[in-house]
């Protein structure tokens, strides 16, 4: 910062110097008898002539020097401002990524969707995805959240923002692809349900830092609920984490947050 400013202001200090010297020499030269006859004033005492000449000289040069001063000053100010802006922008960019994004997602996984097709981390490339963890026997929160997700998707598609919505079950024991298929019929048609073995799901939840507690061995017919953390994860086209969306966001504010995050992502990448 200091280095730049000094370099910018240097010409401002140096340049006006010869100008003042010029002013003086001119004033002196006019008083000497050696100067050209036509240049010598007619009439008036030596003293008064000197005074007027000197005055006239100052008057003649003042606007020029002021203009010069303003030009150099303005130029260095503009350069200074430009550099400052550039540095501010760099600093802002630095600060945004400086603290690092949390290590969420981005690791390989292999699950199956509601049609029994394989779905892996590679299927998250080249598109934005929004990932939600839940389970089909969820009493009240998941259905609400999935309805909200449907609203966001509709809202965003109006702005031509297409997201790949994923619903990952935390309850693989009961949520077979068929169950998921039946369950997701009630929600936005784009949502893809993912399930797998208990181990696969455990790994998936672990990489997304999702806490959940499903009993591993449940007797058939035994009823239970799965305790799990409730966040949406917005993921970038490289399968990396962008941001989370919590329950505090509603139909409008959630869509707004996704829109802003994606714009910001596109601006910086």
């Amino acid at each position: 910062m200091l280095r730049l400013t000094r370099r910018n202001w240097l010409p401002l200090i140096k340049k006006p110097l010869p100008f003042t010297r010029l002013l003086h020499t001119n004033a002196i030269r006019y008083n000497t008898p050696k100067s050209h006859l036509s240049r010598q004033p007619i009439g008036g005492s030596q003293a008064s002539r000197t005074r007027t000449r000197r005055f006239e000289n100052v008057e003649f040069n003042a606007p020029l020097s002021i203009a010069f001063f303003l030009f150099v000053g303005g130029l260095s100010y503009a350069i200074f401002e430009y550099q400052k802006n550039k540095m501010d922008k760099e600093q802002e960019k630095e600060s945004r990524k400086g603290y690092g994004t949390p290590q969420i997602g981005g690791h390989p996984f292999k699950l199956i969707d509601q049609d029994g097709k394989e779905f892996s981390d590679k299927d998250m490339l080249n598109k934005f995805s929004i990932v939600y963890f839940g389970f089909s026997h969820c009493p009240d929160i998941c259905p609400d959240e999935l309805d909200k997700l449907g609203c966001w998707l509709d809202d965003l598609s109006k702005d031509r923002i297409e997201l790949q919505p994923l619903f990952v079950t935390c309850d693989p024991a009961r949520d077979s692809p068929e169950v998921l298929k039946e369950y997701l019929k009630d929600f936005h048609p784009g949502i893809r349900g993912l399930t797998g073995t208990y181990e696969d799901i455990k790994q998936m939840c672990k990489q997304y830092r999702v806490y959940f507690s499903t009993p591993e061995h449940v007797k058939p017919g035994q009823e239970y609920l799965v305790d799990h953390s409730i966040f949406f994860y917005l993921m970038d086209p490289q399968g990396k984490f962008i941001t989370i969306l919590g329950r505090n966001l509603d139909e409008l504010t959630g869509a707004e947050k996704i829109r802003e995050s994606i714009w910001e992502y596109k601006r910086t990448h």
Partner: peptide, 9 residues
């Protein structure tokens, strides 16, 4: 769905 309803008969 693997749901055997004999528990809640």
């Amino acid at each position: 769905m693997v749901w055997i309803p004999f528990v809640s008969s």
